[in-house]
Design a protein around this nucleic acid. Structure first.
Lengths: 202, 202
DNA sequence: GAAGTTCGCTACGCTACCGTAGCGTAGCGA
DNA sequence: TCGCTACGCTACGGTAGCGTAGCGAACTTC
């Protein structure tokens, strides 16, 4: 027994502290982890690199998280971008706005390179798979909401392949970014949206 | 100089030999590398594991390839599945057949888990990015061919968003498999194809 | 059958990385 | 001011993995 914790809260590690130093440490560590995750992927990110980039000592990292995987999971959770839900008044406007938002996320750092890293990691880590599914589910919600508003305005019919809607809209954008690896422009998004509308709501 | 190559061909390593022993070694090594790539991803695959699974000695691996990356690149090149080009007589039949083929590839081992690994690796290795783009380009060709045949039969109009066609068809399938991570059924493929046809060729 | 080639095996040297221990210091809160 | 807490630093043990060296044995080819 080298230490005798006398305080009620922080005797044991891995317990969130509100000490401004601890808050700052956690922030810079997570920021660095996110950047490195994007650069080197899940397996390629090391605790030592996180320490070097964040300026925090490696020991400090282990004071806040039990192991490397926990740090990376925290980094992933921290970065999930909140899906915006534009309400432009028209279905097309909503969907285009939404598509542009998505394009921005998957083409600008750090989230850009993080998506491939997540997809790969999800294949081998159930907890990451869950995070990714949550992230995706969260992103499809505003699409449904936009369609729902359109139905209420009498702009679209109801009940049409609700489950298909997001896939048809988001799929091509991701496909172009990740698989065929060609540029994803704003005009491209509008083409997809227009095709989408032509197929489902005419 | 510890060795004095006297033969004209095989004095230096990394030179393809047609000795049946060498041929067999290369085959079992690549097979093992493919399996491990699918299981553990690019960064998680080790030369030692390849040796263990293939039954070949680690030294043998280094006799055929200069380093680990070269082995993995060879494994990737070896696995690119040839895209089938069904010709069923109708555009819908072709596209559905094609979609089912794709679904089979991305849901059955070893290619299933290889796609995510490739997507991630492509993000950080230009040569892998090139292989992936080639792979994708190869897969879009039969789709174009099917559409072209439909045009010649008078079944469809020409010149409609040729660049968009593959994205709209393949995107949702990949999206569902990789991002939203829900089951990709044959019925799903048919829904996508029908929507696709409704949007573009009606 | 002889020469040449490839193989498996064991044993390395080296580096990178994980996670921990112990120390002294500096910032925080009462 | 004073105790507590979190910090950075250095050092370390242990492991995993890359790539190489040298050997004798087995196979291929001519």
């Amino acid at each position: 027994m080298t230490k005798a914790p006398s305080n009620k809260e922080s005797g044991d590690p891995h317990r969130a502290s509100s000490d401004p130093r601890a808050v700052r440490s956690r922030r810079v560590i997570i920021d660095a982890a996110v950047a490195l995750l994007a650069e080197h992927g899940f397996a390629g990110t090391t605790v030592e690199a996180i320490a070097a980039r964040s300026g925090a000592a490696k020991t400090t990292i282990y004071r806040h998280w039990p192991d490397k995987r926990a740090v990376l999971l925290a980094a992933i959770e921290a970065i999930v971008p909140s899906a915006t839900a534009p309400d432009s008044g028209s279905l097309r406007g909503d969907l285009v706005g939404f598509g542009h938002d998505l394009v921005r996320i998957i083409t600008t750092p750090p989230t850009a390179a993080l998506v491939p890293a997540l997809i790969d990691a999800a294949e081998r880590d159930p907890e990451i798979a869950r995070l990714l599914a949550d992230f995706t589910a969260q992103r499809r919600r505003p699409v449904h909401a936009a369609v729902q508003r359109a139905v209420e305005r009498g702009e679209a019919e109801d009940g049409r392949d609700a489950d298909l809607i997001d896939d048809l809209l988001l799929g091509p954008i991701f496909y172009r970014r990740l698989l065929s690896r060609r540029p994803v422009t704003e005009g491209y998004v509008e083409s997809v949206v227009d095709t989408f509308l032509r197929a489902l709501y005419r």
